[in-house]
């Protein structure tokens, strides 16, 4: 009889907690709300450990852009299946700014701004649709070129981080907030024209181990956006290299 009472109390406590959780989520602000049923296809997949690569060390992997055959070799184990493609494009996009991009970490932004800026249309032509994969990873060179060409940037970090500073023109698309699916659908409606759908979209978060941008890219791909790029070093890298930034809640 004691055990029954004990279990009943425990069940009541848990039920009360669930009720509190659902009610508090119901009245939570947009940024603190969660969809009750999550949609995370990779939730059980353990990511391969990045060889604790800090931001700087990602540069050399971009540097070897001579032979495409060798590019596949240093592919970082972080990105699952897109790894090889990712480095290839990263290498090719990095070719637009001066090829001596290795010491770029030391030099700030000027690297890209001094590069002979190709016409926006030419840049966009280089970033063709890739319907067979959710996203292609790009480095700063590619991101800066796309930014100059006026591509849409989406910030996958939390809205609070977005407000503290984001890539100029980027929109807040936090994958962890409840309204993300709604935002993605809205974007799709906004770009219903097939020509607009083919325009490149860049997703980014905070670089390093952050995979929110990849998650966002998966969502965009799922709704048939076939030209999505992940700026894998993300906002810290952009900021460090002096890319244009804005603060506040508007792009």
């Amino acid at each position: 009889m004691d055990l029954r009472k004990h279990l009943l109390e425990a069940a009541t406590l848990i039920a009360a907690a669930v009720l509190c959780a659902v009610v508090s989520n119901g009245i939570a602000s947009r940024e603190r709300k969660l969809a009750l049923v999550g949609a995370y296809p990779n939730a059980l997949k353990v990511p391969a450990e990045a060889a604790t690569a800090p931001l700087e060390t990602t540069l050399p992997s971009v540097a070897p852009m001579t032979a495409t055959a060798t590019v596949a070799l240093p592919a970082p184990s972080t990105a699952p299946m897109t790894a090889t493609v990712a480095t290839t494009t990263a290498a090719s996009t990095a070719a637009t700014p001066p090829p001596k991009s290795a010491p770029a970490a030391a030099r700030p932004a000027i690297t890209t701004t001094t590069a002979p800026a190709p016409a926006a249309a030419d840049t966009l032509k280089r970033f063709q649709q890739h319907p067979d994969k959710a996203y292609v990873e790009i480095a700063y060179g590619g991101a800066a070129a796309l930014h100059n060409a006026g591509a849409l940037f989406l910030d996958a970090r939390r809205t609070s981080a977005y407000e503290q500073g984001h890539i100029a023109g980027a929109r807040p698309y936090s994958v962890w907030e409840a309204d993300i699916d709604e935002k993605v659908k809205k974007l799709f409606a906004e770009r219903s024209d097939p020509e607009q759908q083919a325009l490149p979209i860049v997703a980014y978060c905070s670089g390093g181990e952050c995979e929110d941008s990849h998650m966002l890219a998966q969502k965009l791909w799922g709704i048939q956006f076939n030209n999505v790029y992940v700026y894998k070093d993300g906002y810290p890298d952009w900021q460090k290299r002096g890319g244009a930034v804005r603060t506040g809640s508007t792009p």
Binding site: A17, V18, C20, A21, V22, S24, N25, A28, E31, R32, K33, L34, A35, L36, V37, G38, A39, Y40, P41, N42, A43, L44, K45, V46, P47, R158, S174, W176, E177, A178
Partner: peptide, 28 residues
């Protein structure tokens, strides 16, 4: 809750559908 749901996700043990539910209820 979204930050905590992210933490739950990082464990890579909870199936995707339940990540948010766990992130919401466990703290309560």
């Amino acid at each position: 809750p979204p930050s905590f749901a992210h933490m739950v996700y990082n464990y890579r043990i909870v199936p995707g559908q339940f990540v948010n539910l766990m992130g919401l209820t466990m703290p309560w």
